[in-house]
């Protein structure tokens, strides 16, 4: 009886996470592939599912028109994709540059302070990201807090245009994504044994050398995890550039949004998302997987 329970417990431990992944990750993905192979129509739902289990049994009638349409108008999708990748790339880079010293500082402070700082890092998640963006607008506006201060302090006479610039866009991106970068970096940096750093110093390495040859390579798993955690959602981001940026920021996320909401073409929206996953995200995940394989 007892061992049966244990066996059940073990099965639960293995299958619960798998089931979770299956239900909340794989199923939506499969459904998205299904939608991308369906035909759009004016109905509820606004597509004719390619794969269907209905009264007359199971049917599967995929159409590739949605992909062909994207292929035909590839220029309309390529430039937003380039914009998105550029935005995601620089957001990731800036997050990394800001997060690294912060994560280092947190990892090197004493244990109780570490926990407080980590809670503070997570704090922004308790307010909606949209609210935080409006708070940022309140800071950066021509008559916002920062400009008011600069004018009051006599540093500038006319307000500095900070909104609708790269500066405001990346401020918003960093504000939103920084915690996702800090946490994995922190996790890899606390693991760093102080005596290893001292050994390097003892063997003649100066600060920059220690960073380059010891700290950075040893924190690489954290760097990679952090970059993925920021890059992947940033590729799909469009609300932040729309709120904070000027007119030149057409993002792939917005293109998917317009396919979905304006053209009411759910299948094409799904097809773009699938292509995005196939072109940008799968290779990253695959390379990461290869990396892991070769290490172990």
């Amino acid at each position: 009886m007892h061992s049966l329970l244990q066996k059940f417990g073990r099965l639960l431990v293995i299958w619960l996470p798998l089931g979770w992944l299956g239900i909340f990750f794989m199923l939506p993905l499969v459904e998205m592939v299904n939608v991308s192979l369906s035909e759009a129509r004016r109905a509820v739902p606004p597509y004719n599912p390619a794969f269907q289990i209905g009264k007359d049994g199971i049917s599967f009638q995929p159409v590739v028109d949605n992909y062909l349409l994207i292929y035909e108008y590839w220029e309309d999708y390529l430039w937003p994709a380039v914009n998105s990748v550029r935005l995601a790339f620089f957001s990731t880079l800036y997050c990394l540059l800001f997060a690294y010293p912060m994560a280092w500082w947190i990892a090197r402070s004493n244990k109780s302070l570490q926990h407080i700082l980590l809670v503070l890092i997570l704090m922004p998640f308790w307010t909606s990201s949209l609210l935080r963006m409006y708070a940022l607008i309140g800071l950066l506006n021509p008559n916002g807090v920062i400009n008011d201060f600069l004018i009051w302090a006599g540093i500038t006479v006319t307000p500095i245009q900070m909104m609708q610039t790269d500066f405001s866009i990346y401020s918003g991106m960093i504000l939103t994504y920084l915690p996702l970068m800090i946490l994995p970096l922190y996790a890899s940096l606390v693991r760093l044994d102080n005596s290893v750093l001292e050994a390097a110093a003892d063997l003649g390495a100066k600060n920059w050398d220690i960073f380059r040859t010891i700290i950075l390579p040893l924190s690489m798993p954290g760097v990679i995890a952090g970059c993925l955690l920021v890059f992947i959602p940033a590729v799909g981001e469009f609300v932040i550039p729309a709120l904070l940026g000027g007119p030149e920021q057409l993002m792939l996320g917005k293109v998917i949004w317009t396919e979905f909401f304006r053209n009411r073409d759910w299948p094409v929206a799904a097809a773009i998302a699938i292509i995005l996953i196939a072109i940008i995200i799968l290779p990253i995940v695959y390379a990461r997987y290869q990396d892991k394989e070769s290490i172990s």
């Binding site: 044994d193 110093a201 003892d202 003649g204 390495a205 390579p217």
Partner: peptide, 30 residues
């Protein structure tokens, strides 16, 4: 004088080897 510049080397109790480097690279580090 900085640790890096002292004519002194230390062997740590925990060895403090560089885990990401081969044995040769560990030895060659200094």
């Amino acid at each position: 004088v900085d640790p890096a510049d002292r004519p002194v080397n230390i062997m740590f109790q925990s060895y403090a080897l560089f885990p990401h480097m081969s044995v040769s690279n560990n030895i060659a580090y200094g």
